[in-house]
Design a protein around this nucleic acid. Structure first.
Length: 626
DNA sequence: CTTAGGG
DNA sequence: CCCTAAG
């Protein structure tokens, strides 16, 4: 059974595309548009929504609403309604997405509650404040929806987006800094998908209007507003996302290492733990450190913000930014509500004889790939849930085209999280934390915008000059490899930009982690299969450097791929070698070109031999000494 | 922090 | 991918 998310790719499928929709509460449910041929080439849903919302703000600062119909054609099915809350910022979308994609229902509610509480705090007596209510504790799905439904998010402009270095501090609770010029930067920055978010740590990528020169070694940056959201997020795994301090790991490891010991990004667990304790202000506070502009090449913003339009997805960014008033608490505090949320179209190929169970799995895989996991998929036919996983599609009638329209999917929280302690269907549940929460800031929204990758590597087989330090591989949707000297202004060079299917929606997956302060729900990093181009880069680097210098390999070929650690590379090599040795039939996943596998074998043999020689030499040396 | 390996 | 022992 093949199940792979594809965007905008004309693909042959047995069962046409299935549009997945997260089933929202009845009133929130959206009509499916099966058959629509949206092409999401590289465009991230949130980015689009963001643009729309921004545009809205531009046009009408008072209030507006984005109708689905307003969505840019080809945009993902993500609909927001901001009618009640003008000025919504995209980041909120991310937050919401984070919440709704969180695997832990109770966590979601907790967060939602927190958000609401914060809101209350900010606008005491404001009628806008909607108490979050959770219903039926026993029904996880319900609670989940409830969260989605009721959650109101307040947006605050990311303060220290820029100069992390300076540690622009934003008082919790206020969090407003105004530097208009950087508005766009902020927006752009928002999107960090994976670990690059902490662009701050990345010298070459970090650009800020204020700080042209990135400072690398500065480990002192403190996260002012660190968002627990993000910290807990699986994506953060590497711990690099939002913590500048952790980030330096690779680059300034020496310095940082000695100096700060605890908050290491590396062991995620530790880090999270640390965070829990370190959040100085209220433990409950969600803080997010400053966000730095994204490393993505195309997005670098100079003071003028000219770089912002590189991507279609961000096209409106700069415009909005400029017109936007510097943050003022008033303007920037907005509530956003997601009326419905749809996952982009997915193409799934599955045989007629496949079971419903396998269909669920397929869909789940695809969806999880997008949402970052933590979800389970249910199948509905004509609104009724098909519970028998063992029925075949044929038996269920799903194999018929005409039935496809009646086919629906539901996303449910995975597993058996103990239902939130409380709540009863009709009893609005007052979520626990009563203590006013500190204002929270949301980290840059991980809008998936940039799935742009340099494909040059794949094309150019010629060995790059050894001198080039630039990474060879795509930075997994994020920062473009930008040689230090090269201004990041030229996002588009001659190289072909290719949208890669992978979405970094994982960024959205968040694990609120906040049971008690101590529970460290260290989540396993999400799986990120190596793409062929990555493999190519890896092979190339290993051919050059050998198998015992993973850090160098990382630096050389994956410097921009924050989520690939040298350990990952080493592991990947291990599996590559294994893969190369087994029969093609036994291989799984995206097939790696045989040529590459051959090179793997060759390189492996060569360097193994080399290593052996070294050892022999050493041995003889010691012998001589003795 | 890096390497090297087992899980 | 994670976890660890070693260096």
């Amino acid at each position: 059974m093949v199940c792979s998310p594809r965007y905008g790719v004309a693909e042959q499928v047995r069962i046409d595309m299935v549009l997945m929709a997260i089933r929202c509460p009845p009133h929130l449910e959206l009509p499916d548009h099966l058959g629509s041929s949206n092409t999401l080439t590289g465009k991230e849903p949130f980015a689009v929504a963001k643009d729309l919302i921004k545009k809205e703000q531009l046009d009408d600062d008072s209030a507006s609403k984005v109708e689905p119909s307003n969505l840019v054609s080809g945009a993902p099915d993500l609909h927001f309604s901001t009618k009640e809350f003008p000025g919504t910022h995209i980041d909120d979308c991310s937050v919401l997405a984070s919440v709704i994609t969180s695997s832990d229902c109770s966590e979601k509610i907790g967060w939602a509650e927190k958000l609401v509480n914060e809101e209350s705090k900010i606008q005491p007596g404001s009628s806008k404040v909607e108490p979050l209510r959770a219903r039926n504790a026993s029904n996880v799905t319900k609670a989940y929806m409830c969260t989605l439904d009721k959650l109101a998010v307040r947006y605050r402009k990311p303060p220290a987006l820029i100069s992390q270095e300076n540690s622009v501090k934003v008082p919790l609770g206020t969090g407003h800094v105004s530097f208009p010029a950087c508005r766009d930067v902020v927006n752009i920055a928002v999107r960090d998908d994976d670990e690059n978010s902490s662009g701050c740590t990345q010298p070459s990528t970090t650009k800020t209007a204020f700080r042209p020169s990135p400072r690398i070694g500065d480990c002192r940056i403190r996260k002012i507003l660190a968002s627990k959201f993000w910290k807990a997020a699986p994506k953060l795994k590497d711990g690099e996302y939002f913590t500048a301090e952790t980030k330096p790991g690779y680059h300034n490891r020496k310095n940082c290492y000695k100096r700060k010991r605890s908050p290491r990004d590396y062991p995620l667990k530790k880090r999270i733990l640390y965070d829990g304790h370190s959040l100085s202000n209220s433990d409950g506070g969600i803080t997010s450190e400053g966000i730095s502009s994204s490393p993505r090449k195309g997005f670098s913003c100079d003071a003028s913000g000219s770089g912002a339009t590189l991507h279609g997805a961000l096209g409106t960014t700069s415009g909005v930014a400029s017109r936007h008033t510097p943050f003022q608490s008033r303007d920037s505090h907005v509530k956003l509500r997601i009326r419905s949320f749809k996952v982009p179209e997915l193409f799934i190929e599955i045989p007629e004889t496949a079971t419903v169970g396998s269909l669920k799995r397929s869909v789940m895989e695809a969806v999880n790939a997008i949402l970052g996991g933590g979800l389970r998929v249910g199948v509905l036919l004509q609104g009724k849930k098909i519970r028998d996983d063992n029925k075949t599609l044929l038996q269920t009638g799903l194999a018929h085209d005409n039935k496809l329209d009646a086919l629906g999917f539901s996303l449910e929280p995975t597993v058996s999280q103990a239902p939130p302690p409380v709540c009863n269907e009709d009893h609005p549940l007052l979520l626990s934390c009563n203590a006013p929460q500190p204002l929270t800031r949301y980290p840059p929204a991980p809008c998936v915008v940039h799935n742009i990758v340099e494909q040059s590597a794949a094309d150019a087989l010629a060995d790059p000059p050894l001198t080039s330090v630039g990474s060879f591989v795509e930075s997994d949707h994020d920062s473009a490899p930008s040689p230090p000297d090269m201004s990041d202004k030229s996002p588009m060079d001659s190289r072909a930009l290719v949208a890669i299917p992978e979405m970094d929606a994982e960024a959205l997956a968040v694990v609120p982690m906040r049971k008690s302060k101590r529970s460290e729900a260290v989540q396993r990093r999400i799986r990120r299969p190596f793409s062929v181009s990555e493999v190519e880069a890896l092979v190339h680097a290993v051919e050059k450097l050998g198998t015992g210098r993973w850090r160098d390999v990382k630096l050389r070929a994956f410097d921009n791929a924050k989520h690939r650690t040298y350990v990952d590379l080493k592991d990947k090599w291990k599996t590559l070698v294994h893969t190369a040795r087994i029969s093609p039939q036994q291989r799984r996943g995206e097939p790696v070109p045989q040529v590459l596998l051959d090179r793997v074998l060759d390189a492996h043999a060569y360097w193994s031999q080399q290593q052996a020689k070294q050892q022999l030499k050493q041995q003889s040396d010691t012998c001589l000494l003795l």
